[in-house]
Design a protein around this nucleic acid. Structure first.
Length: 169
DNA sequence: GCCAACGTTGGC
DNA sequence: GCCAACGTTGGC
């Protein structure tokens, strides 16, 4: 059961994802404070393709990387999709891409909304003990992908590990 | 189209 | 801070 005592309702068509962020750059606390954010700055084609496949209502696990311990710390929800990443056109942005043109954008993203911080974070070590690299890509050795799909089966087990109750609609 | 060089990611 | 793994770039 979550903070407000509400079960998460999992709709059958909902897809699950995992989003990585370095907490010193942007943490789950930052997302809770802001409530929503544009997930901009992704500059990897595979990750971009996953961003483009997202649908409103999809849920994404929030993963803290390059921290001790790394792991899944909470959940957010996709609320807006097919957003052209504005930072690609901004010369002042670290994500500026001089090859991207407004009439032919290269990078897309989504807006996500804070859902909850987990009662217990699920460390990478715990993930490795629970999932094979094929079941959850984030435990793949040398994995650098920052946006990846999570199967419903893996999502349910992950929520269980996090101490979250899962209900039906 | 190959592949060496380089830059980045991210666990440890 | 180190370094393995990986993605990208660019010469040929």
């Amino acid at each position: 059961m979550g903070k407000a005592g509400q079960c998460l309702k999992l709709r059958p068509v909902m897809a699950f994802w995992l989003l990585k962020s370095e907490p010193h750059a942007f943490s789950i606390d930052d997302l809770e404070r802001k409530q929503s954010t544009l997930w901009d700055g992704v500059r990897n084609y595979q990750a971009r393709n996953f961003l483009r496949a997202m649908q409103p209502g999809d849920l994404a696990f929030f993963y803290h990387s390059s921290t001790e311990p790394p792991g899944v710390v909470g959940l957010c929800k996709v609320v807006r999709t097919d957003v052209v990443d504005p930072t690609q056109f901004d010369p002042a942005s670290p994500y500026y891409d001089p090859a991207a043109r407004p009439e032919n954008p290269r990078w897309w993203t989504v807006e996500v909304e804070f859902v909850r911080r987990f009662a217990r974070m699920v460390s990478l070590e715990a993930l490795r003990q629970t999932f094979t690299p094929d079941e959850l890509w984030v435990v793949r050795r040398g994995n650098r992908l920052s946006v990846m799909p999570v199967s419903e089966e893996a999502a349910r087990r992950l929520l269980e590990l996090a101490g979250e109750a899962v209900g039906s609609p």
